[in-house]
Amino acid sequence: MTFEHEGSIATTASPAAIWRLWSDTGTWAQWDPPVERVVLDGPFRIGTTGTLTLAGGIEAPFELTVVRAEERYVDRLTLGELVIDIDHRVEAHGDGALVTVHTTIEGPGADQIGPMVTADAPVALAALVAMAEAPAPVA
């Protein structure tokens, strides 16, 4: 079984501002509601693995399968027989950027778990964009 979901949002933030938040896994819990903690086992590049701790203490191992600075990254989570690929893309658009997240879930029960996994996706996109658009703190 396969489940797919995609959402996009336009922002006045630059692709570089979006990328800074994406590539700093320490920010993920600030803009992605189900994420409580992220541990990355190395630099933000293809092949690096880590662990996401999700709401309720669920730990999900993941791997970065695509990384193109200021353009795209894909993280692959493996939960038992389910494989979840989350493709994050950003491109210049007008005076800012267009941010798109495409989620593909494969495995038994994908159709049932998919809507739960992607339920907070619009909230996460909006929070990411709000953080990227916020003025930089004064030092």
Rank of each mutant, 00 (worst) to 15 (best):
P61M: 14
I105H: 08
V35M: 04
I86K: 01
P108A: 15
A124E: 07
M116E: 02
G109N: 09
A60V: 09
T78I: 11
T51M: 03
D120L: 05
A121H: 15
D111S: 06
R37Y: 10
V129S: 02
H93R: 12
D111V: 02
I113L: 04
V74I: 15
H102G: 01
A126I: 05
V35P: 07
V90K: 10
G107R: 04
L52A: 03
A97V: 02
P43Q: 14
T53A: 08
T49Q: 06
D75G: 01
V67G: 00
V38M: 11
V35F: 10
I105W: 04
T49S: 06
G114H: 06
D85E: 14
E106M: 14
T51Y: 00
A130D: 06
L128R: 05
P122R: 06
Q112Y: 00
T49I: 04
A124I: 14
V66G: 08
D87N: 12
T78H: 05
E59R: 15
T65L: 05
Y73C: 10
E70V: 11
P61I: 03
G57R: 06
E36K: 10
Y73E: 09
L125T: 10
V90W: 13
E81P: 13
P34R: 08
V67Y: 02
A119I: 07
E59N: 10
A134G: 01
L128F: 01
V66L: 08
P108D: 15
G42N: 04
D111A: 15
G80D: 04
M131N: 14
D85R: 12
L98H: 00
A126E: 13
L79K: 05
A97D: 11
I105T: 07
A127D: 13
I84N: 12
E91L: 13
A134L: 07
D95R: 12
F62A: 04
V129P: 03
P115M: 03
I58P: 06
R76Q: 11
V101I: 14
V66E: 07
V117T: 09
G80Y: 00
V123S: 09
A119Y: 01
I113N: 04
A127F: 01
A121G: 06
A121W: 05
A127I: 02
A55T: 12
A60G: 03
D41C: 03
Q112N: 02
A55V: 02
D75H: 07
L77F: 08
M131I: 11
V129A: 12
G107D: 07
E70M: 07
V101M: 12
E133P: 07
V35G: 02
T65G: 07
E71D: 09
A130S: 13
P115H: 12
D87V: 08
P122Y: 04
R68H: 09
V83I: 09
A92L: 11
T104V: 15
L82A: 09
E36A: 03
